[in-house]
């Protein structure tokens, strides 16, 4: 079973301490929801997990082994969906999907078509991406999650711009990914509903003394020393 651990992580961006002494322990099937105000470091933590931002202190472990910075082997295990959609406006949805699927997976045309169908984009496949609405672009960008199979999903506000139906499909995708033993870290302002998840409150992560958190947001999962929920 997969295991992703963060221990005593600290992050400084632009001279400001975003968070410190932050930890979590996730196993296959877990989902961690990052909550917190704007600027509390949710995106920075996700970028740190993806290896773009170096922690100034602390360690990350994948299946017990420490993850080095810029480790291509670790990156092969993860999907990172940030704010940008990684789409080229001039290319058709299908060409864009081929790139997304090819870069993260083994680029099989069948995978690409399955992903387009899964996100109800088949009818739009030949349309240039610049004619897609922002929600459709988001769906196209999320297609890579279906097109290639990677165990760790890092999703930065994946629900932005999606309608209720698309959001439902995204939630279903996340749940089936978890059911298959994958794990998932989501930063969200509450528009994506997860089942039985862990919560990491980034506002509290900065104020280390203030460790009172409403018990309702805790999950029944193993949390080492209250690390995951500060």
């Amino acid at each position: 079973m997969h295991r992703l651990q963060g221990h005593d992580l600290a992050c400084r961006r632009g001279g400001r301490m975003l968070f410190e002494a932050l930890g979590f322990d996730l196993r296959g099937g877990d989902a961690l929801l990052l909550v917190g105000a704007n600027g509390s470091g949710k995106s920075s933590l996700l970028r740190m997990l993806a290896g773009f931002v170096r922690p100034i202190a602390g360690t990350l472990r994948w299946n017990g082994e420490e993850i080095a910075a810029d480790d291509p082997l670790w990156r092969r295990h993860l999907h990172y969906v940030g704010h940008a959609d990684s789409l080229k406006p001039l290319l058709s949805a299908r060409h864009n999907a081929a790139f997304l699927a090819g870069v993260t997976g083994d680029g099989m045309a069948a995978d690409r078509e399955r992903a387009l169908a899964h996100l109800h984009l088949r009818d739009l496949a030949d349309r240039p991406a610049r004619y897609l609405s922002s929600g459709q672009k988001r769906r196209l960008s999320l297609a890579r999650l279906v097109a290639s199979n990677r165990p760790v999903w890092l999703l930065d506000e994946p629900g932005v711009g999606l309608d209720a139906a698309a959001r439902g499909r995204l939630e279903a995708m996340i749940e089936s990914h978890r059911a298959a033993g994958g794990l998932c870290v989501v930063a969200s302002h509450g528009d994506v509903a997860l089942r039985r998840h862990l919560v990491l409150d980034m506002d509290a992560a900065l104020e280390a003394e203030e460790d009172a958190l409403p018990a309702g947001s805790r999950s029944a999962h193993t949390i080492e020393g209250g690390d995951a929920v500060r």
Partner: peptide
Amino acid sequence: QGDADDGSLELLALSGAP
């Protein structure tokens, strides 16, 4: 610049290719 603006660069970094 285009790839940096639209997030493709991040995706390429995650491809696993050096």
